[in-house]
Design a protein around this nucleic acid. Sequence first.
DNA 1: ATAATAAAGGACAAATTTGTCTTCTATTAA
DNA 2: TTAATAGAAGACAAATTTGTCCTTTATTAT
Lengths: 142, 142
Amino acid sequence: MILSKSCEYAIRASVFVASKSQKKQRVGINEVSEAIGSPRAFTAKILQTLVRKNILSSAKGPAGGFYLERSDSLHLIDIIRATDGNGLFISCVLGLRACSDTQPCPMHKQVKPIRDQLLIEFSNKPITDFVTDLERGKYYLK
Amino acid sequence: MILSKSCEYAIRASVFVASKSQKKQRVGINEVSEAIGSPRAFTAKILQTLVRKNILSSAKGPAGGFYLERSDSLHLIDIIRATDGNGLFISCVLGLRACSDTQPCPMHKQVKPIRDQLLIEFSNKPITDFVTDLERGKYYLK
DNA sequence: ATAATAAAGGACAAATTTGTCTTCTATTAA
DNA sequence: TTAATAGAAGACAAATTTGTCCTTTATTAT
C-alpha cells in the first residue's frame, strides 16, 4: 500500500539475511523465500538489485549465498530508496508536479509533517535493531 | 505513491466540483479534467464510481454535470476509502497478513502512530475547507 | 417528437508491477 | 578438469493499474 510488494519482500528478506549474517552464515535464495513466504524467482530478482546497489552482498557457488557486510550502517531507508526510490517522502500526495511549500496542493500542509516523521523513523532504524528481537520470536517475517 | 493515481484524480476532481457546487454550478467532465489536468475518459470513470458510491451527484443532459449535495459532510477520507479502500490505514506495511499489535512485523510499532495520525488528518478534513482557499488562489489542482 | 447535450457503460489497449522459467557464469571441492 | 552448487541475467507471462473509444441512456429545449 505505502510500499511496493517488491519493497516489502526486500525488507523482509534483508532482515532475514541480516539475522543469518550475524551468525556468519550465508543464506541461499531458497531459504530466504521460504523464510519470508515470498515467490522464489521474484525474490531472487529483488535481491539481485539489492546486491547491485550494494545493500547486500552475495557469493556464487557452493557455500555461497547472500549476506551482509557492514550491517550496522544499513538502515531501512536504504532498502526503501533502493527499491521504491524517494517518492514516498517527496512527491506530492495528489500527484501535482509543481506542489511545494510555496505552491501547495490542498493536502500539502497536513501531509508534510507526517511523511517527515515517516522518513525519520525509517532513517533512524538500523536493520540490526530488528535482528535481536526477531531471534527472540518477537517479530515475524511471514 | 501513497495514494493511487485514481485517488489523486478523485480528490482533485472532487475539490473542483465542490468549489463549483458552492456557486450552485454543475460542471461537466470536460471542464473537470481540464481544470485538474487529468485524462478525460479516465477521470470520467473515476467520477462515475464516486457517484455510484454517493460521494458525488450527477445529472445527465443539457445543463447536467457533476455536483455535490451535502458538501459539509464530505471528508477526504470518504474519497480515499471509495477509491483506494481502507488498506492504507490498516494493512501491514511489510505485507504480512497476520501482522497485528500482538504479532507485529518489524516496522509495526514505528508505523502505527504515523498512519493513525494520517487517518485523523484525512478524517477531520472536510472538502469545504479546501474550497475557500482554492478560490483565493492559495491552492492549485493542476 | 426531435435534436442536442452530457453522463453511464462496455470493450479494448497501454503501461507497470508482479511473477516464472531457462540459460549463463562463477565458485568450490573432489 | 569435471561435477555440483548457487547467484546473475534475459526472455516471457500474468495481473493490476491506468487510460481510450464507442455506444447507450437520460434529460432538456425547441
